[in-house]
Design a protein around this nucleic acid. Structure first.
Lengths: 246, 246
DNA sequence: CGGGCCCTTTGCGTTGGATCAATGCGCGGC
DNA sequence: GCCGCGCATTGATCCAACGCAAAGGGCCCG
């Protein structure tokens, strides 16, 4: 559970050049992002204020307690959102996938750090710029509002999971929710990719790495899942659902 | 942790008569509620759409999975927001105090039940009515938005607490956060009132009633707190802070 | 293709909090 | 005042998950 506090990489690659090839118009995640409510004209305005930003595996998009100078749309890849206690205990607050919006809470300072779990592409907006846009566009505000409300219900689900579920239920529930999230962004498959390591799963579920590993092995032995490199194949989703729901 | 599913009381008292004595104009919680952003003229419009609703101890304002027909402002008293698993395990998602808004998530159905921990007074708005008001008043939407964003950060704090803190840290942290919440609504005192029972605290913190009791006794024995009927006197808040922060 | 690195898995002993079981205690009703 | 009820406390035991240690396996790099 203790993690090293090694210096983190911040040298993300910013595309300053005009994005003629991939503007907002043909953005892959537009239909599932907060931008989906904007018209083509509005998208063009937005485009001028945005920057593409690419991160490599392990790089930090922003760190806990840093001033929140920008917000982001995730276009590609997966990020880990973590909060660290002074003594090194860590809680993973969530994993951001394509279409997710980072900085919803719009606080002065980020309450979590966001780190890339693989190559990640994001769309960056300056905080001031973004505040101005939402001010001017009530339907964007409503879209953001709907998204925070959704995030709040997810957070409450997670509170129930952390407070009252057993290790096995936690792991089963995690695999299913990840499958559903991937399905919603078009990755429909019985094989669920796990872009995060065991330690990340453990810190997300309030467990230790050993317990996560043991529960995965147990589910594997029971033929509920099949452990494959980089992911998990769900063999008996119904059984997992029963475990997750209780 | 198992709770009986006895029939819950719903016969809340509704004031249908015109509230000449206590309109929104002199509402006690207005400065700290989402209504604080409305002008006096707007408040009068709002008043026509609202109903006062009084609950006695143990009565249910709304139940989990019921269609969400209304939203509420808490005026007086304290409510417990709980989510129940099919097998009876319970998670208390939070406690609502005066000034709090119930139904922020604006879902089709309530994801929690809300039960009065003592006498409670609320201000009720029909769902449709309320949606129409927020549609018409962007500053109210912004106020709600700010509130959900705040709730989201609270939920994340709670996730860290549930996932990574020890029993003693959980209890210390709970007492401090309750003190702070009471302070914000004017109840400034070293003695923190505990309107909820031990079981409620346990279900909020992901513990059992016995563990909560033991931790309170331990803090008492260490002279960090003093257990008094109906509450707790914080004797060494600094020590509690150290425990809570780690 | 071999060595080193890092992550994962597994075994085994430990433990924090759960569970079980009394007992205590405040409060309302009679 | 005394009884009964619902909650809270305390003690004794248990067990799910933790912590440690060692072994396994994939992958990169020379």
């Amino acid at each position: 559970m203790l993690v090293d506090t090694g210096a983190c990489e911040r040298n993300a690659h910013v595309c300053h050049h005009r994005r003629s090839d991939n503007g907002c118009g043909d953005c892959k995640v537009r239909p599932i992002s907060v931008c989906s409510v904007l018209s083509l004209v509005e998208l063009e305005q937005l485009e001028g204020l945005s920057q593409h930003l690419t991160l490599d595996k392990g790089q930090t998009l922003f760190g806990q307690d840093e001033p929140a100078s920008a917000v982001f749309n995730v276009i590609e890849g997966c990020l880990r959102l973590t909060r660290l206690l002074p003594d090194g205990r860590r809680q993973v607050m969530g994993f951001a996938l394509p279409g997710d919006f980072l900085g919803l809470a719009l606080q002065e300072r980020h309450s979590v750090s966001a780190e890339a779990l693989g190559q990640v592409k994001t769309c960056r907006f300056g905080r001031e710029d973004f505040a101005a846009i939402t001010e001017a566009k009530p339907h964007l505000l409503k879209s953001l509002h709907a998204r925070v409300r959704y995030e709040l219900t997810l957070a409450q689900d997670q509170m129930l999971l952390l407070g009252r579920r057993t290790a096995e239920e936690k792991v089963a529930s995690f695999l299913l929710s990840l499958r559903d999230r991937f399905a919603r962004i078009g990755h429909n498959s019985v094989t669920v990719e796990l872009p995060m390591g065991r330690q990340d799963m453990a810190d997300y579920l309030g467990l230790t790495i050993e317990t996560v590993s043991r529960m995965l092995s147990r589910l594997d032995r029971a033929h509920s899942i099949l452990l494959v490199p980089g992911g998990v194949r769900l063999l008996d989703a119904a059984r997992l659902e029963r475990l997750a729901a209780s």
